[in-house]
Design a protein around this nucleic acid. Structure first.
Length: 429
DNA sequence: TCTGGGGTCCTAGGACCC
DNA sequence: TCTGGGGTCCTAGGACCC
């Protein structure tokens, strides 16, 4: 029988900020979403103040001022790099790893003697903290869902061990009875509501639910969760994630956009980033969708939201072709006289680019185009994002994202390394 | 006047995740 | 003044085919 572990970084973005700025320890700290819009990470002190996940930051103005809450814009360059460091440390102890999100990884602990298991996991946890500065919690169980539940309990663990195991003893039922059904992985707010009408309130209730009722009222996804709670695995470890089927780049604008020229530059920029992502995973896209919308929260201005889909004559992954289609599609739905607050580009009908697609009607020889993109990607990777860019993106970026509380890219940028001062006090008393 | 049934593909919408 | 962004999977229903 397989044993899974879930390693989850505690308050990940907040912890990353603290590693390089220890003055943030023991203080309420929040990290904001793009555009400094709402809260995406909170230190324990911030949670204790009642600051909610995804809470809009303008609602917190008084709290921030009166309670000394420290605010940071999100710094994904730093978080991505820290994530890589944490996982590679974990993997040096347990090679069978699935990186599930930026701050979580599942492990397969098969082959580790049950008696040594808690000890080796605790050793790994200590090493991660020592090597990266990031505290992690670890849940262990016979299925991914039970490992998730165990992880949830490990986070609340007051003993400080940070490791919890489920699925071994008679305590399981009373433990599961203490877990709210909404805290089970896969049960969101709507399903929690549905379950409540049937008297299902805890993880234990859900484990004991009737299969047929679950499949009818939820669906097979819900049924899988129930089986997993019983210790019957429905999910396996996915060490090599399949390529994405959808690639999307969208942003809210710091200032509303009112001209087509500006919106076109934004669309070109989104398309360019999506295309890079596409080439990263060696894919092509056959369908491109452009969307634009005015501010959905403003009732005092005319509202408009629309999207346009372009089916490409042949699947491609080169930036100029994709931009051309994006701008043509955007122009079809563009309307003068609105204040656009958000736009995006989505790539679908994604296929592998190997073997090479032949493009009968493409004016540009695919070989030439591929070489140009290859060079462009290489330069941008080694010399910095945006070093080489498509002319359609322009240089102004009037729509640029607001990031007023940004921390340095300590680990990936020579100009932003952390500075240490050694105070030797030579000659002093 | 009678008016089947099964299969596939696609899309939109809804649920979930971090 | 101020409300994120990027994904997955499943289901129902319509179009179309034989």
């Amino acid at each position: 029988m397989t044993t899974f572990a879930l390693v989850d970084c505690n308050n990940f973005y907040a912890s990353c900020e603290r590693v390089f700025d220890p003055s943030l320890e023991h203080r309420p700290l929040i990290v904001l979403s793009n555009n400094d819009g709402c809260v995406v990470a909170r230190s324990n002190e911030a949670k204790a103040l009642g600051i909610g996940m995804a809470q809009p930051v303008f609602e917190l103005r008084d709290l921030i001022r009166n309670r000394g809450v420290v605010v940071r814009s999100s710094n994904y360059t730093l978080y991505d790099d820290m994530s890589r460091r944490v996982f590679s440390t974990v993997q040096s102890f347990f090679p069978e790893l699935e990186s599930y999100s930026i701050d979580e990884a599942f492990l397969d602990l098969d082959g580790i003697a049950s008696g040594d298991l808690l000890e080796s996991v605790a050793t790994m946890r200590k090493a991660v903290l020592q090597y990266t500065g990031i505290p992690v919690s670890i849940g262990i169980g016979p299925t991914k869902t039970l490992a998730k539940v165990a992880n949830h309990l490990a986070k609340q663990d007051r003993t400080g061990s940070g490791v919890t195991r489920l699925g071994t003893g008679a305590d399981d039922e009373s433990t599961l009875a203490s877990v709210d059904v909404g805290d089970v992985w896969g049960i969101g707010p709507r399903w929690k509501q549905t379950l409540a009408t049937h008297g299902i309130h805890t993880a234990l209730d859900l484990r004991r639910a009737d299969d047929r009722w679950i499949q009818t009222r939820l669906n097979v996804v819900g049924l899988r969760t129930v089986h997993e709670l019983r210790g019957i695995p429905a999910f396996t470890l996915e060490q090599a994630p399949p390529p994405r089927q959808t690639i999307m780049r969208s942003r809210s604008f710091a200032k509303p956009i009112e001209t087509w020229d500006e919106l076109a530059r934004a669309l070109a920029s989104f398309t360019s980033r999506a295309a890079e992502k596409l080439r990263d995973q060696h894919s092509t896209a056959g369908v491109l969708t452009v969307s634009m919308a005015t501010d959905r929260y403003r009732t005092d201005q005319p509202r408009y939201a629309n999207h346009a889909t372009a089916r490409l004559p042949a699947p491609v992954n080169d930036t100029p072709t994709l931009i051309r289609h994006a701008l043509a599609a955007g122009q079809r739905i563009w309307k003068e006289g609105f204040h656009f607050k958000k736009a995006g580009v989505q790539l679908t009908a994604i296929e592998s680019s190997q073997p090479e697609q032949l493009q009968l009607f493409d004016p540009l020889d695919p070989g030439t185009s591929n070489r140009v993109m290859h060079v462009m990607d290489h330069i941008n990777r080694t010399m910095g994002t945006g070093t080489l860019r498509s002319a359609a993106m322009g240089t102004g970026e009037a729509w640029i994202t607001r990031r007023q509380h940004h921390s340095p890219r300590y680990t990936t940028c020579w100009d932003e390394l952390v500075e240490a001062t050694a105070n030797t006090n030579r000659g002093a008393s």
